[in-house]
Design a protein around this nucleic acid. Structure first.
Lengths: 137, 137
DNA sequence: AGCTTGCATTGATGAACGTCAATACAGGCC
DNA sequence: GGCCTGTATTGACGTTCATCAATGCAAGCT
């Protein structure tokens, strides 16, 4: 698990897991309560226009790409603390991580998270028919 | 658009579109404000444990499958109105639809919605490198 | 040291949300 | 018609959320 910042309390989720397909899939079988709670936290993090745009701006940098907060903040018609707050929520949801380098802080999308989330939603893979063949992950 | 119930006001979203891949994809390019607002509504609908479980129970029926509300309600430790409310939110998000048949009301997942949502999240498809070759969808 | 810039945290406020009891509505059955 | 069952809607209440101004902290500068 990679939180490279000490001065921030690390409350990241591990829901989507670092490896494998996190869980059976939405359509595979009725979700049990605990997994529903964990996964809902991730979707809730994406359930805000600002956070979706933040995710998109960061994810657009591609694998290994980073974005400086100083690029993110002015892109929104919001106060700096509010943007910072949304970034924190995305981080707590286990979607992104950050690192301070000198004066600036850089954010990136945790590798594989989006693909695993997508896999969870996809019905084709989880259907009874096809075997769980090798996913990109 | 398929709302087969007249007595309910139809406020379904069309965000995820009935055909095609809805939009460039989260990682393709920074999401514009309008699309972010629309998509956030869908993710917000999934951002609650109860609604996620409801979706899962309905989606587990597979393509064309339906679930009677009378099966959904007792599965939760909630009042009937609350479950009904969550179903309404999922419907307004454009994720499910329903139909009354006699005394009972049946819900199903709108076809393709989950796969399109998954496609929106997937990075592989939208990356600059690979051509958009045929996905399982 | 002091100043400045970039970002996170705190505390407050109004809006949105999840929940319930009560009620309304639709359809089947007597 | 009247009654009963299943589901949606209404209205209220407490909690969570998004937002801001003010403040705090880290790092670079002079």
């Amino acid at each position: 698990m990679n939180v490279n910042i000490e001065f921030m309390t690390n409350e990241e989720l591990v829901v989507i897991g670092q490896d494998g397909a996190c869980c059976p899939g939405l359509s595979a079988a009725p979700l049990d309560e605990d997994r529903a709670v964990e996964l809902a936290r991730v979707f809730k993090a994406l359930g805000d226009p600002i956070r979706l745009r933040l995710m998109s701006m960061i994810a657009s940098r591609g694998e290994g790409g980073e974005v400086c907060v100083c690029e993110l903040t002015p892109a929104f018609d919001l106060s700096q603390p509010t943007v910072s707050h949304h970034l924190k929520l995305l981080r707590q949801a286990g979607l992104i991580d950050c690192e301070r380098r000198g004066t600036w802080v850089y954010y990136w999308v945790l590798p594989g998270v989006l693909d695993r989330l997508a896999g969870f939603l996809t019905t084709a893979r989880t259907a009874a028919g096809a075997p769980p063949e090798g996913l990109p992950s």
